[in-house]
């Protein structure tokens, strides 16, 4: 289960950023706080290989984990723009 909002504010903001761009969140168990997945599921998308990602409850470095989540989302948005 996602335990309500993520305890870390940077990760909370990164998850909000993903959700705002259409990503969806589902519960996870154990060390996973939740699973984010990209809505596009476009097989042509370079990131389509790994379009489902696990957000940790207690990552080793929360600010880096938040940054990696943002980069994943921004890379997809960026690639989307590049296709236009």
């Amino acid at each position: 289960m996602t335990r309500g909002k993520h305890p870390n504010k940077d990760i909370r903001a990164a998850v909000e950023h993903a959700l705002k761009h259409g990503w969806r969140l589902k519960p996870a168990k154990g060390h996973g706080w939740g699973v984010l997945f990209c809505p596009e599921n476009d097989p042509a998308c370079r990131s389509g290989k790994f379009c489902i990602k696990s957000v940790w409850s207690t990552p080793r470095r929360p600010e880096e984990h938040a940054r990696d989540i943002r980069k994943w989302v921004d890379d997809c948005i960026h690639m989307g723009d590049a296709k236009k």
Partner: peptide, 29 residues
């Protein structure tokens, strides 16, 4: 892959963003 998440975390992947596609590929950032 969701069954691998706890073993991956405990093996030291707590500084990685683990991703998958449900078709046999696993990614770690």
């Amino acid at each position: 892959v969701e069954e691998l998440l706890d073993p991956l975390f405990e093996a030291g992947c707590d500084d990685a963003l683990i991703g998958w596609n449900g078709k046999g590929s696993l990614g770690a950032t």
